[in-house]
C-alpha cells in the first residue's frame, strides 16, 4: 500500500466535505431569510417605540437591503473571519455568547461518549457470545429498550430517584471543573447517564454485530485450531479486528449527542449550547440561533470526515479501494 491511496481517499473526502460545508452554510444563511413575514419586525417585537429609521438601521446592519448573493458572500466572508453576527438583545458578537457555553456541552457529550464506548466493548462481546435463542432475544429486547428510552424521561426519573434518596444532593446547575472538581463531577453524573444510555445501547449493538462478523472469519477458526484458549481468541484476535468498524460509528453518535445534549441540558439546567439556543429561539434572537446551529453542524461534519480519514489511514483496504 502506498501513500497515494491514503492521499486519494483524503482528497476525495475533502472535496465532499467542502461541498457539504458550503451547503450547510447556505442553509444556515437562508434561515433568517426564510422566516415568514419580516424577520426584522419579529426580532424587534411588538415594541411600539420602534421607529421606521430603527427598522431600516437593523435591516442594513443585517444586510437585508442587498441582493441575496451579495448578502451570502458578505455573510460568509465575515463568518470565515470569525464574525458570526451580533446578538440582537445584548449587541455583543454572538461568538462571545457561544464560546463560554461550549465547555459545558463538550464535557457532557465527550464524557457520555467515553462512558458509553468503554462499556459498549465488553457488553457487545458478551452479547455476541449469547448462544441460546432465548438469551439472544432478551439481549435484543433490552438493547432496543435502551435505544428508545427517551433521555429526558430517564433524566427526570433519575433526578426524582436521587432527590428522594438524598434530598441534600446538589444535582442541578453547573460549577466549572477548575473551581470545584468534585461539585462539577457530582452534577454531571446524572446528565451523563441520561445521555449515554441510548448511545451505549446503540454502540453495543454495533460492537455485537461487528464481533459476530469477525468470529465467522477463517483466521478465527485457525486461531482456535491452533489450540488457543477461547479467551485469547476473543480477546486478542477477534477484538482487535472488531473494534475498527465499531470506532467508525463514533462519528454518527456525535450527531445524536449534539441533539440529545439540548434536551438533557434542559432537564438538568446545565448552561450549555443547547439551553443558549433554546433561550435564543424564545427571544427570537435569530443571529444567535443561526450561529449555534451552523457551528454545531460544521463540527459534526468535520468530526465525521476525521473519523473517515482515520479509518482510511488505519485500514489499508479502504484507501486501496
Amino acid at each position: 500500500m502506498g501513500h497515494t491511496g491514503v492521499l486519494n481517499a483524503l482528497t476525495r473526502r475533502l472535496g465532499e466535505l467542502s461541498v457539504v460545508a458550503f451547503g450547510v452554510s447556505v442553509l444556515s444563511f437562508l434561515m433568517i431569510r426564510l422566516i415568514p413575514g419580516d424577520a426584522v419586525q419579529i426580532m424587534l417585537g411588538a415594541n411600539a417605540e420602534v421607529t421606521p429609521a430603527q427598522i431600516a438601521a437593523l435591516r442594513a446592519k443585517l444586510g437585508l437591503d442587498q441582493p441575496m448573493v451579495l448578502q451570502y458572500g458578505d455573510w460568509a466572508w465575515r463568518a470565515l473571519h470569525g464574525d458570526l453576527g451580533t446578538s440582537v438583545w445584548t449587541g455583543r458578537p454572538v461568538l462571545e455568547e457561544i464560546l463560554p457555553r461550549v465547555g459545558v456541552t463538550a464535557e457532557l457529550t465527550l464524557l457520555s461518549l467515553a462512558v458509553a464506548a468503554v462499556l459498549a466493548v465488553p457488553l457487545g462481546c458478551l452479547m455476541a457470545t449469547a448462544r441460546r435463542r432465548s438469551a439472544d432475544y432478551t439481549i435484543r429486547l433490552l438493547s432496543i429498550v435502551g435505544l428508545t428510552l427517551p433521555s429526558f424521561w430517564l433524566g427526570t426519573m433519575l433526578l426524582y430517584g436521587v432527590a428522594a434518596l438524598a434530598p441534600d444532593a446538589q444535582l442541578l446547575g453547573w460549577v466549572p471543573f477548575g473551581e470545584d472538581p468534585l461539585g462539577n463531577l457530582q452534577r454531571i453524573i446524572l446528565p451523563v447517564i441520561a445521555l449515554a444510555l441510548p448511545v451505549l445501547a446503540s454502540l453495543s449493538r454495533v460492537m455485537r454485530a461487528s464481533m459476530v462478523e469477525v468470529m465467522r472469519q477463517d483466521y478465527i477458526r485457525t486461531a482456535r485450531s491452533k489450540g488457543l484458549s477461547e479467551g485469547s481468541v476473543v480477546g486478542v484476535h477477534a477484538l482487535r479486528n472488531a473494534v475498527l468498524p465499531f470506532m467508525t460509528s463514533f462519528g454518527i453518535m456525535a450527531g445524536y449527542l449534539f441533539g440529545g445534549s439540548v434536551v438533557v441540558e434542559q432537564v438538568f439546567a446545565l448552561p450549555g449550547l443547547g439551553r443558549l439556543m433554546l433561550g435564543a429561539i424564545a427571544e427570537r434572537n435569530y443571529p444567535l440561533v443561526q450561529a449555534s446551529i451552523l457551528l454545531a453542524t460544521l463540527s459534526f461534519v468535520v468530526i465525521n470526515a476525521l473519523v473517515d480519514v482515520l479509518y482510511a489511514v488505519v485500514d489499508p483496504r479502504i484507501s486501496r479501494a
Binding site: V19, V24, L27, M31, A254, G259, V262, V301
Partner: peptide
C-alpha cells in the same frame, strides 16, 4: 443527492429545531 447530503449533515434534533425556529 448532494442536496440530500447537506440536509443529512445536520444532527437530527438541530435540524428540527432550526426549522421550528424559522416557522
Amino acid at each position: 443527492m448532494r442536496c440530500m447530503d447537506v440536509l443529512f449533515a445536520f444532527p437530527i434534533i438541530l435540524l428540527a429545531i432550526a426549522v421550528i425556529a424559522v416557522l
